[in-house]
Nucleic acid binder design. Structure first.
Lengths: 161, 161
DNA sequence: AGTGAAACTGAGTGCGG
DNA sequence: CCGCACTCAGTTTCACT
């Protein structure tokens, strides 16, 4: 669970790349590619999960197919000192907020919001604006994606450079 | 592959929710929860993949554990009419750009960038700025995440509302 | 579309190098 | 840390309802 030393070699990196491409690749198949037995691959994957490098396995879904057709980023401006903990509370109460972070620049926080349509998005925005310490919001609607959309939490490749 | 009719019922939605929570949940286990046999669940999953609702299965990875410790959003301003196709080309040539989209507001595009550190990020930024038709960029650095980080491409729950 | 059984493939574990 | 061999669980296909 805890990511302590977290030292991993070239082999681990290749395993991660394989699992990011397809989380259902069998250990034997990965092993065949990188030159290791299925057992060895399994043990390394277990270790990567224990050390917190791999946090889970999820299905990637086309949001529009599920009825989420509107996407936007919302810059949030707070009154005085913005307490990240209270913001986190607010954010958790709105399922349409799929990501939230504190940022540099004029705004205190940046939210990623998914909604059914523009009407639904407006409703979410109104809900956010009722929060006492939120002073102002600026919305940027997403028009189209220029790349197929890689996972927010993971990098395109297993290692920088 | 093609997402045509893509009509799915309550059962499909529950299957999607289960697989988003854990892509390795067995068909039998999902079936036990929603009241279906493993065979029936498998066929529905196969159909959901064919119709493009489920686009894949991936391992979620802690970017910082892989050496990606710097994250930012970059607003891109272009000269005259910004051609999305040419922007898409540019974006594909930089592995540090993990998401790119056209947006409303002053900027023409918004990029999500991951880099090793601030030095690396600066280098990426300089590379982006050499593109002829890119006039200006505004960077917003991510300081901390307020929620564990849900996948960019998928919604928190399987259906709006 | 759903079920249940058969055949097969991959996961998980103990032991030895 | 790795590989081998074994067991068992999960996947996949098929015949049938």
């Amino acid at each position: 669970m805890s990511s302590r030393t977290a030292s991993f070699d070239e082999l681990d990196r290749k395993i991660i790349t394989a699992l990011m491409a397809n989380a259902r690749t069998s250990f034997a198949e990965i092993g065949a590619v990188i030159g290791l037995s299925a057992t060895a691959v399994k043990r390394r994957v277990d270790r990567l999960r224990e050390t917190g490098v791999i946090t889970g396995f999820t299905a990637t879904v086309e949001p529009s197919a599920l009825g989420w057709r509107t996407e936007a980023y919302v810059e949030v401006y707070c009154e005085g000192a913005a307490p990240p903990r209270r913001l986190a509370e607010v954010v958790r109460n709105h399922p349409e907020i799929t990501a939230a972070m504190t940022v540099t620049g004029g705004a205190d926080a940046l939210l990623h919001v998914r909604a059914r349509d523009v009407e639904h998005f407006e409703e979410v925005l109104e809900r956010i604006r009722t929060v006492p310490f939120i002073r102002k919001t600026i919305s940027v609607m997403v028009l189209s994606h220029l790349i197929p959309d890689s996972p927010e939490a993971g990098a395109t490749q297993a290692a920088p450079e």
